[in-house]
Simulated assay, not measured.
Amino acid sequence: MRGGDEMTQLYEQLFRRKSFHRFTKPFKPLTTEQLDTVKQYFSLCEPLVENIRTLLCIVPVGQTTCRQGEYALLLYSERRDGYLQNIGYLGEQLNLFLTKENIGACWYGMGKPKEREYEGLHFVCMLCIANQDEGCFRTKEAKLNRLDAKDIWEGEDAYHLAPVVRMAPSACNTQPWLVKEQDNTLSVHRVFRKRGIIPPSLVPYYQSIDIGIFLFFLEVAMEQAGLPYKRTLLLQEPVHTGPVLTATYLVNI
């Protein structure tokens, strides 16, 4: 589990973060020191899946198809079992760090860089970023377009985690997750609810990244609640359609 101070800071950012589909202008240019700090933080992020090589490349948004923000954070990875979930898990750690630093960010799923490969790794996804004033971020009182907690959680939610994890971002706000709680076990499933503008063939791709984001939200919420857990990942997906079991957590062990 993460250190107390670090975990508390991450937990607080769950409520502050927002997806900046439009950045408030004018914004102060990001400094070299800020960008170096972002790179350093990513190098220290905890992976979901060990031994998958990943890299972060920061480029001006003009070098991508994105037209929002100032810079794009390009996430590259080896293609191995769980690499999409891993990128979501890593990228959301970065997203919450950016929020703490008052750097606005948005997962820009359909964006493409000029370099589709970088040092032998494949481009997976990007975030666009720009400095934003502190008041531009979400407050706990702000309205949030999310499913009700009861719609993403089956079981009694004994530890009151659902109201927190329902805030997780997802591509086109599809919210492709369902947690089933039984005894002291949480089973996290990737489910299809809608696809928005995502091409049908790419739905599993983006929603696998989303599940990685969700797992990080869930773990931060559990750690804030002081709940020890043992995680088991299921990374080889079945060929059938329907709910895909992604991870189980034995809680309060």
Rank of each mutant, 00 (worst) to 15 (best):
N145E: 10
R231G: 06
I209A: 05
V38G: 08
D133Q: 10
D5E: 15
K194S: 12
D36R: 09
W153R: 05
Y118R: 14
L90N: 00
N102S: 11
L144G: 02
K143E: 09
N95F: 10
D157M: 04
Q9Y: 09
P29M: 06
L96E: 01
E70S: 02
R2V: 12
I103E: 04
P60A: 11
K143G: 06
T8M: 13
L74M: 09
F27D: 07
G226P: 04
R80S: 15
C57F: 06
T64A: 11
E219F: 05
L94F: 00
L84N: 05
S43V: 03
V124E: 11
V165T: 13
Y205M: 05
S201P: 02
P163A: 14
N86R: 12
G104Q: 14
R22P: 00
L245E: 11
E237P: 07
D36I: 01
F15H: 06
W177A: 01
A142I: 06
R193A: 07
L121I: 06
V251I: 15
I213Y: 01
E134S: 15
S187K: 15
L202T: 10
L35E: 10
V239A: 13
A142W: 01
L233F: 03
V61Y: 12
P199W: 00
V59S: 03
K140W: 01
K112S: 08
W177P: 01
V38C: 05
E237M: 13
T8C: 04
R231C: 07
L250W: 12
T37L: 14
G212V: 04
G226L: 03
E101G: 07
T54Y: 01
F137W: 04
C136M: 10
T174H: 05
V203F: 11
T139P: 03
E101Y: 02
P26A: 08
Q34K: 10
L10Q: 02
N131P: 00
N102L: 01
L202G: 02
E223G: 07
H240Q: 14
T37K: 14
R2M: 15
Q68Y: 09
Q182Y: 04
P47F: 01
C136R: 12
Q175I: 00
K143A: 15
K112M: 06
E119T: 06
L30D: 03
M167R: 14
K230F: 00
K100C: 06
L48D: 07
L235N: 08
F15T: 04
E50Y: 10
D81Q: 12
V38K: 09
R195I: 09
M7C: 12
L186M: 10
S170A: 05
K112R: 15
L250H: 13
E70R: 02
K39R: 11
R116F: 04
T232G: 04
L245W: 08
A221Y: 08
E223I: 13
L127K: 07
Q68D: 06
L96N: 01
L147R: 12
P47Y: 04
Y89D: 06
E119C: 03
S77K: 10
G62D: 13
E119R: 14
G242F: 02
M110C: 03
F23M: 03
L186N: 05
F20E: 07
H160K: 15
P243W: 07
